[in-house]
Design a protein around this nucleic acid. Structure first.
Lengths: 144, 144
DNA sequence: ATAACTTTTAGAGTTTACTCTAAGTCAAGC
DNA sequence: GCTTGACTTAGAGTAAACTCTAAAAGTTAT
């Protein structure tokens, strides 16, 4: 129920430096310190870190995350703002997922292309492999 | 078939500054210049930019992208390396997509949570809304 | 209680990917 | 021919997110 900065860093895949940096930037305003000045992280703090990870991982800047935390601290008068923020983040996320799917198609094509020419040479590759030619046409006009 | 830097910037959603920067970093080694020193972008260059967009959008650094381009220029001896790179990028991409799905669950929960308490207040929210309580339990232990 | 390790602070430094400036050249419309 | 806007270069500046340093103090294992 009380963790050191090193334990949390390990658990969350961050460094202690980064955790101190986050705190300095106002992203971890609830962390307590013990009598000797050492940080004591609670499960609640871990929860905040997981939310930070989620928002950062969906493209929000630390500044944007801080805005959310400031709204949270401000209290119930900011409930709509916070809801709106998550709704917007959902829209962004949906666009990101579509984008990644498009990137996946391109990368799958590249893998198929390189596998083909490594196996059978690049001469007449699109005459030989019609599937590849079709996919190439669908994705580009010319391969790179 | 020949575009100015401004036309390409607009088309690709970048700035002319960024395109010059990419060229300086070795990411666009095939761009020609006309008699007066102005860059003339071809469809092939656009294709390279689309590949750069794909690799960048799947988390590769410009340095990593340059490595691929250098391998491409080096020729057939690097075919396996290039294939391996795309395979690795696919693995990364699959992990990213899973990650985004997990983030989506969290964000959907937050939207449901805020919608609920904006509509009906925060007192006894989890006693009132069992669906929410269940989802909360699944995702956390405690809400933030 | 001593050695080895972790944490503390303020502040400086680094990396990545742009982003802008200045001074000049080029191109298109009137 | 002139104006307006786009383009050129080298190089400086910026923003975000860390990342590290140094010196001191706290903690843990033997």
């Amino acid at each position: 129920m009380g963790y050191t900065i090193g334990q949390v860093a390990k658990k969350m895949g961050l460094t202690a430096h980064t955790l101190r940096y986050y705190e300095k930037e106002g992203l971890l305003p609830f962390i307590k310190k013990n009598g000797s000045g050492l940080r004591v992280f609670s499960d609640n703090d871990i929860g905040w870190l997981e939310l930070i990870e989620c928002l950062k991982g969906t493209g929000m800047s630390l500044k944007g995350i801080k805005q959310y935390i400031d709204w949270y601290i401000e209290g119930d008068s900011t409930l709509e703002k916070r809801l709106e923020m998550f709704k917007q983040q959902k829209v962004n996320l949906e666009e990101q997922m579509l984008q990644l799917q498009r990137h996946m198609e391109k990368i799958n094509y590249k893998i198929a292309y390189y596998s083909e020419i490594i196996a059978n040479g690049s001469e007449g590759v699109f005459e030989r492999n019609k599937e590849l030619a079709k996919e190439r046409e669908r994705l580009y006009g010319i391969d790179k």
